[in-house]
Simulated assay, not measured.
Amino acid sequence: MSTAADRGVAVGVDVLERSELRRLLERPWFLRFVFAPEELAHAETLGARRRLEFLAGRFAAKEAVLKVLGTGFLQGVAPREICVQHTPNGAPVVRLQERASRRAPFAISVSITHKRDVVAAVAIGLSSSIDAVVGKGRTTAKESDAVSSPTIGSTAVIQQNAPDEQTPETTAFLRVRIGQEDAHYGGHLVDGARILRLFGDLVTEITIRTDGDEGLLAQYTDVRFTGPVKPGDYIEARGRLVRQTRLRRVVELEAHTVLSAFPEAGDSAAAVLDAPQLVCTATATTVVPYPRSKTTTVLDRTTEES
C-alpha cells in the first residue's frame, strides 16, 4: 500500500467475515463510534440479514479508506468521520468529515463486494482532481453485486459533470385503499399477503421499465411486518431498484399507512395520519430472460405484421 499523495495513487484493501461483527453490532457504543448517523439511519430501514450485510460492507470500506489515509481506528481519525453513502443507482460514495477530510487532499474511490459471509472493500486515493462529486461526497465507484460476484470487482470512478447527468433512479409507486373484503383475521386485520401482492406489482413495473419484460419474481428476503393494516386504510407502497446483474434485479420495498378509518368515531370517520406509519418492508429479487434483457424493443403493429 502506498500512502504518499505525490505518488499519484494510494490503495487500501480490507477483507472480513460478517460473523466477526455480529455481536459488536448489537452494542450501541460500537455503532456510535464506527458509523455516521446517515449510515445508521439507513441500516434501521433494513431487515436483520440485510442490515448485517450493509454495516459489514461499510465497516470494510472504512478500514480500506483509513489505510489510504495512512492511519488507523485510534490514530487521529474516528471511523464515523468516514461516511459511505450511495448514489441513486447503488454505487458507494465516500464522504469525509471533520479530521478525515483534512487528511485527504485527494479524491477517494471505493468498491465493496460480498460473497456468502465474506465482505471485501478496495479504496483508491487519486491525487489528481476529479469532478465526480455527489452532494458532498468525493468520488463514486460501482459496488459489486452481492448475489453473483465471486471476487473483488475492479474499481471505476464515475465522473459526473453536472447533477442532471446522473443516472436516474428507477422506482415505482402505488396507493390503494384496503377494502372490507380484505379483512382476514379477528379484529378486522388484513393478512400480510395483501401487502406482498402490492410489492409484486411494484417489482413487475420496475422490470418492465428497465428490461421491457415482466420478469419472474424469485424470492422475498428480510420481510418485516411492522404495523397492522385494516379495512379503510390507504396504503402507499414504494419500490426502488438497488442492484442489478445480468439476469437479476434487486428491489427494496416499503409500505406505509397514510390515511386510516376510525370507526370508533363514526361509521364513515377517517383521518390523515400525522406521519405515515410503516407497515411492511422487504427486499425482492426478480429474474429477467437473458436474450431480452436490456435489448427488448416494442414493435409497432406494422412491423409486427410484416
Rank of each mutant, 00 (worst) to 15 (best):
S2Y: 10
A4D: 15
V9W: 12
A10T: 10
V13N: 10
L16M: 13
S19K: 13
E20C: 10
L21N: 00
F33Y: 15
T45N: 05
G47Q: 01
R51C: 14
E53M: 00
L55N: 00
G57S: 00
A61Y: 03
E63I: 02
V65E: 11
V68M: 08
V68L: 10
L74V: 09
A78I: 01
Q85L: 14
Q85N: 06
T87H: 10
A104E: 06
I108H: 06
S109N: 07
S109F: 07
S111E: 05
D117M: 02
V119D: 01
I130R: 09
G137V: 04
T140Q: 06
S149I: 02
P150W: 06
I152V: 11
A156D: 14
Q160R: 06
Q160G: 08
P163V: 03
D164Q: 12
R175M: 01
R175A: 08
I178T: 03
I178Y: 11
G179K: 13
D182Y: 08
D182Q: 14
D182N: 12
D182K: 10
Y185Q: 13
H188P: 03
G192F: 15
A193G: 15
G200K: 05
D201V: 00
T207V: 11
D211R: 02
E214L: 01
G215K: 03
A218E: 12
V223W: 13
V229C: 06
K230W: 09
K230Q: 15
A237Q: 08
G239Q: 09
R246H: 11
E252M: 04
V258I: 15
L259V: 15
F262N: 12
A265C: 02
A270P: 00
P276Y: 06
P276E: 08
Q277D: 04
T281M: 01
A282L: 00
A282Y: 03
T285F: 04
Y290P: 02
Y290S: 11
V298Y: 04
V298H: 02
T302Q: 07
E304R: 09
